[in-house]
Computed example of a mutant assay.
Amino acid sequence: MLMDGDECRRTGRYGEAMAPIRVVLVDDHEMVLHGVAAMLSRFPDRVQVIGTASELPRAVRAFTDERPDIVLCDVRLHRASGLDVCKAIRDVDARAKVVFLTVYDDEQYLYQALRAGASGYLLKRVDAHELVRHLENASLGEIVIDPILAGRVAVSAAHLEKGEFWPGARLGLTQRESEVLALLVAGLSNKAIAARLVVSDETVKTHLRGLYRKLAVRDRGGAVAVALREGLFH
């Protein structure tokens, strides 16, 4: 069982005590930075927050100055993307470990993060014990992925192995974009779609922008027209 603080020390392969993982936090919301730092402070013998940043230049500077074991970063930031932060940090040191901690449960963000060289992709619903355990695994070289996304990706891979595709796959839509389009066809509002898929309104808007671009349309009506014309949903 995982224990808080001094009750559980990190040990190596042969049982020797190990130094705490040194972490830099990157998020454009000060409340989130304070919240995650407070969460991790419960485990001082396992994790130490040694710096924070809210934008790309400061994140790179913090990494260069502090050389943390892990950079824990949101996938979306003001004026930049967490993906840009990951690439910039790994340009400084290709061995750098960046783990994303975000609300965006979209497989496409996960794929982009892994292509950028990330060591993990976790959702902000993770509890303190799980987060510390994931950071420890990432520090040992593992790729850590939130179980919800890992399960979804596994199911998608299994379907692809069988040659089964979701509606809209042939038009370039992701499985989640196809789900959003189906709910558009059903007449649901953005807020209703968010509630149905248990995601944020902003996540729905991101999916809509993606499917509009792929379907070469400008609005909901155009997307629905393409879906009906192509016989995507019955």
Rank of each mutant, 00 (worst) to 15 (best):
E202N: 14
E66D: 14
V224S: 00
R95C: 11
S200T: 13
T52M: 11
K214D: 08
H134Y: 15
V217A: 03
I50H: 13
S200P: 07
A128Q: 01
E30G: 12
G51R: 04
P57E: 15
R22C: 01
E230L: 03
P68D: 09
H78N: 15
G221T: 05
W166C: 07
P20L: 05
R46F: 03
D6R: 07
Y212D: 04
H129P: 00
V153T: 10
G151F: 04
T174L: 09
L33G: 04
L160I: 04
D6S: 11
I70P: 00
S156A: 14
I193D: 00
L110I: 07
H207V: 02
A37V: 09
V153L: 12
L173A: 09
S189N: 05
G187D: 10
A17L: 14
G163S: 07
I89W: 03
G117T: 12
D4W: 07
I70K: 04
L149N: 05
Q112D: 15
L208G: 00
V132S: 01
G221Y: 01
T102C: 11
A227S: 04
L232P: 01
D74P: 08
A62V: 08
D4E: 14
L123V: 09
R67H: 13
G12A: 12
V26C: 12
K124G: 10
A59S: 14
G221V: 05
Y14T: 13
M39G: 10
K87I: 10
G5W: 02
E177N: 03
L211I: 10
S189W: 06
D201M: 04
L173K: 02
A150K: 10
E202F: 15
R9L: 14
G15E: 12
T206I: 12
G51E: 08
S54E: 09
D201N: 10
L160E: 13
R218S: 11
R170T: 13
H129R: 01
V85A: 15
G82K: 14
K214N: 10
V75F: 08
D28P: 00
L77N: 00
P167C: 09
H29F: 09
G12D: 11
P147W: 00
T64E: 15
D105F: 02
I193C: 00
F63R: 00
G222I: 01
F43I: 02
G5D: 08
E107M: 14
A182R: 13
L110P: 08
R213K: 14
E164S: 12
D4C: 07
A169Y: 13
L135R: 04
L183P: 08
V103N: 11
S41L: 01
G231C: 03
A113Y: 04
S119T: 05
A138E: 01
A113S: 12
L40G: 02
L77G: 05
